[in-house]
Design a protein around this nucleic acid. Structure first.
Lengths: 122, 122
DNA sequence: TGTCTATGTTGACGTTTATCGATACAGGTG
DNA sequence: CACCTGTATCGATAAACGTCAACATAGACA
């Protein structure tokens, strides 16, 4: 598999326009379901560190071997990276021996817009 | 109690400066612990709807009675509002018969800054 | 082919969480 | 005072979650 698009994950196009600013109107149940998945993905300390490690790496992309030092076992790291992928926050690609994860910018932009609106509310 | 500051909750001053942009450098374990608590609070669909209902209400403040129609029981609503309060995202005040919840802007600003940085990374 | 390394998957275990009904508390009204 | 309404707490239960050890898979290289 040379392409990650065949995986049945959340696609950026599907989640990016999901979220009106939190202050605009009460979220519907469906909107909340989608948006909560993204927040939940960042709601674990280990996942947040892994995500930050990828995001802060050169080019917004990192090999698993570069970010695995977060104090948990290798299977646990793999499990968390999978969760981040399922939430649409990361994508992965195998290049030879190593697997590289990269941040999904459109989804983050959507989340940032969500919160930026709420912050200026009061 | 006419003042919410006496409660042993996360104070805005304590969490606001916790978070460098996600892309700046890998988060430390301590930073991730604090930041993950905020994301986790918004990582539930019901809580996200409750928060959005408060944030979108006039003045960023709403009575519980105005936002309780989210499809779960009254104790569950109360439980989720408590969680949001413990995460520092909402504050509450009793005024006569009703209890009003209001958004805590500084914490949201911190979260927004976190994500805004990550969005522009790639 | 076989072996070594990097990563993902499986199965199990203990902890946390979301939810509810029942109940308690607080404040207004009679 | 008694009663009603709005909100919080308690106790129980089922589901989800984080973690690990063991195993599986994929690619590189000899």
């Amino acid at each position: 598999m040379s392409n990650a698009k065949v995986l049945p994950l959340l696609e950026p196009e599907a989640v990016a326009p999901c979220c009106p600013p939190l202050t605009e109107r009460p979220m519907s149940a469906d909107e909340a379901e989608v948006a909560a998945k993204m927040f939940k993905a960042l709601g674990d300390p280990v996942r947040l560190r892994l995500f930050s490690a990828v995001a802060s790496h050169e080019g917004g992309e990192a090999c698993v071997c570069d970010i695995s030092d977060v104090g948990v076992s290798q299977p646990t790291v793999s499990h968390h990276l999978k969760k981040l992928k399922e939430a649409g926050l990361l994508s992965s690609e195998r290049r030879g021996t190593w697997v590289y994860y990269r941040v999904e910018p459109s989804v983050l932009a959507a989340m940032g817009a969500l919160l930026a609106g709420a912050a200026k509310a009061a």
